[in-house]
């Protein structure tokens, strides 16, 4: 019993870690004695990683970037859900503004960077604004769609029982729309990360994107590679964090879906 469990756990571990280990080893060996300027040995990259990012730059570049990302993303969530609920609740309003919103969503968000620089300069405000202006659309449009497709019967029931606005909002509208809101929020997260980097590459005096571009311009290749790896790790960490939040928020929904699927 225990041996078979151990065996299974070992197999699982092998499946999860096997290929990444092979790939990293291949990278390590292929570049081990590399004198190619563009592809420094992975060993060197790993060696410079600590000194480059963990001493000094952590507080001067990495944390400010993440703080702007956090503020911008949360603001986009709050605004997107708030406006989305308002628009989704009125058919006329929705028909009026939806084409305009679809147009704004279709604009590639990074082109807003030069425009927002005009208004907000190149400070923290601009970067947060860039993140909000790009990340808000998927959240907003998905919220509208989610609120719109809430079951009519549930809606009428809530009206019959004269739910207070607050109760109606938390138990019916936000709950009912949450699967779609989360879909929008997931798209928005990857857009927000892209915009965090882009806004710093365009004009900044600190931040991850800025530092990586500095390394590239000064041909500090191992440092640049370590920055690329760090950005990748941040992307992966945030997507794991998101999934954690999602399973919490949508626990009821996944449960319901599973029951329905097994029942059918």
């Amino acid at each position: 019993m225990t041996t078979s469990m151990l065996w299974r756990a070992g197999r699982r571990l092998l499946l999860i870690a096997g290929l990444p280990a092979v790939l990293i080893t291949a990278w390590w060996l292929a570049t081990a004695n590399s004198t190619n300027f563009y592809w420094p040995p992975l060993r060197t990259i790993v060696e410079v990683f600590g000194p480059t990012w963990l001493e000094g730059k952590l507080t001067s570049d990495v944390l400010p970037s993440l703080a702007r990302l956090g503020v911008g993303y949360l603001a986009a969530l709050a605004l997107g859900i708030g406006i989305g609920v308002a628009i989704g609740s009125s058919t006329t309003l929705r028909a009026t503004v939806e084409p305009v919103l679809e147009f704004f969503r279709a604009i590639p968000p990074p082109v807003l960077v030069p425009i927002l620089i005009l208004f907000a300069g190149i400070g923290d405000g601009m970067k947060v604004l860039v993140i909000v202006s790009g990340a808000i659309w998927p959240i907003l449009l998905n919220t509208v769609e989610g609120v719109r497709s809430i079951d009519e019967v549930l809606r009428d029931t809530a009206a019959c029982y004269r739910f207070r606005t607050r109760t109606r909002l938390t138990t019916l509208i936000l709950r009912g729309a949450s699967p779609q809101i989360m879909t929008g929020a997931r798209q928005a997260l990857s857009i927000a990360i892209i915009l965090m980097v882009i806004s710093e590459m365009f004009a900044a005096s600190n931040g991850l994107g800025f530092t990586i571009i500095q390394f590239q311009r000064s041909f500090a290749l191992p440092q640049m590679w370590s920055g690329i790896i760090l950005l990748g790790l941040i992307g992966v960490a945030l997507s794991l964090l998101f999934r954690l939040v999602e399973t919490r928020v949508l626990a009821w929904y996944f449960g319901q879906r599973d029951t329905q699927q097994s029942g059918a």
Binding site: V197, I212, I213, Q216, M224, G227, L231, G232, G235, L238
Partner: peptide, 12 residues
């Protein structure tokens, strides 16, 4: 690999 932001590849 999927969540790695593609803009990270810009310098490369």
């Amino acid at each position: 690999l999927r969540p790695i932001p593609s803009v990270a590849l810009i310098p490369l």
